[in-house]
């Protein structure tokens, strides 16, 4: 690794070129042997790629334009999903999707931030940055799940809660704060998975859970590396350094006790194979709900309290 971290496109270039070469050989049976050799080489490249990522490169990977988003996961892990809209207060925030889902026939409330793939979708989804009505929708549906004794799955993927005049007018801070308090009281199992970006309070507002997991290349941080760099280094181009310093990757947060486990991604990142990424996520989620199903409502709430009560480090 050079001192100057490569950007993701540069890093992925040899992999993509090799993939294209293999695809071009697929139709020609006489080249089968050669192709198999190249496929082995591709796997090796991907492994190296995954193992040698700097923290900053992992941040870029979590923002990869082809990375699976909440709805990509939902459509792969659910037998059926009925989206439910609105906060019954002000509006329906498309930056958060929520609804009744069934995983292997079991009812689950699923809530997650949703980013957009193309320009039109990005605008509709407000780049995955929720407003107060999004958090209030999430809370309303968590309460609905609690009423009917159904577990809750939160998929976290946001740069952060939307910083805007209208969001402040409607109480962005109050909406996030309310979720933290109410989620601590929920008498049903809650599992949260950071699938991409875990941007500060806007992420935590869906993150007070009995099991908090992160996808292998996801990040979870108090501030974006760029934001941190521009404040503490007075220079946002120092983001790679800030990414390192903030310890925002899954392995580092596992060491710090912020998360409970890491969900493996396909070799080379979740964007290389959405189906595989979803299968790995589903496996981890189903296992967690299986464990939590054993606990009484009181035990769930008390253990959740203990889990968050011991967060932090004091000398």
């Amino acid at each position: 690794m050079s001192d100057q971290p490569l950007d993701l496109a540069q890093l992925e270039k040899p992999i993509l070129e090799l993939e294209a070469q293999i695809r071009s050989m697929e139709m020609d049976p006489s080249q089968t042997k050669e192709r198999e050799k190249l496929e082995k080489k591709l796997e090796k490249l991907r492994t190296e790629f995954s193992q040698n990522l700097t923290d900053w490169q992992r941040v870029l990977l979590a923002r990869h334009p082809k990375r699976p988003y909440t709805l990509d996961y939902i459509e792969r892990i659910c037998d059926r999903f009925e989206e439910i809209h609105g906060d019954r207060r002000f509006g329906d925030d498309a930056a958060i999707v929520a609804g009744l889902g069934w995983i292997d026939g079991n009812p689950v409330m699923i809530i997650g931030q949703q980013k957009g793939r193309d320009t039109k979708q990005k605008i509709l989804r407000n780049f995955g940055c929720p407003k107060p009505e999004g958090y209030r929708k999430a809370l309303r549906l968590m309460k609905l799940a609690e009423k009917f004794q159904r577990p809750i799955l939160c998929l976290i993927d946001t740069q952060g809660a939307y910083p805007g005049v209208d969001a402040e007018e409607r109480g962005q801070a109050e909406a996030i704060a309310r979720n933290l308090l109410e989620m601590a009281k929920l008498e049903v199992p809650v599992v949260a998975v950071v699938i991409g970006e875990g941007g500060s309070g806007g992420a935590l507002a869906l993150g007070v859970a009995d099991r908090v997991m992160m996808m292998e290349n996801a990040n979870y941080s108090v501030i974006s590396p760029e934001g941190c760099a521009s404040i503490l280094w007075k220079d946002s181009s120092q983001a790679p350094k800030a990414a390192e310093a903030l310890k925002l990757t899954a392995p580092r947060l596992l060491d710090l006790g912020v998360i409970d486990s890491i969900v493996k991604e396909p070799l080379g990142g979740a964007h290389t194979d959405h189906d595989r990424a979803a299968a790995l996520l589903k496996e981890a989620v189903v296992e967690a709900f299986g464990e939590l199903a054993e606990l009484s409502a009181e035990a769930l709430v008390e253990e959740r309290y203990q889990k968050f009560a011991k967060m932090g480090s004091v000398g």
């Binding site: 009925e82 906060d87 329906d92 009744l100 009505e133 009917f148």
Partner: peptide, 29 residues
């Protein structure tokens, strides 16, 4: 009303029974 957060879902008449049936299955023990 859906855009303003008051209606949870607009469902056409031919889908209504199927939707309600699924939601009842989700909610009822």
């Amino acid at each position: 009303l859906q855009a303003h957060g008051m209606v949870d879902k607009v469902v056409s008449r031919d889908q209504l029974k199927d939707f309600l049936k699924a939601c009842l299955a989700w909610m009822m023990p």
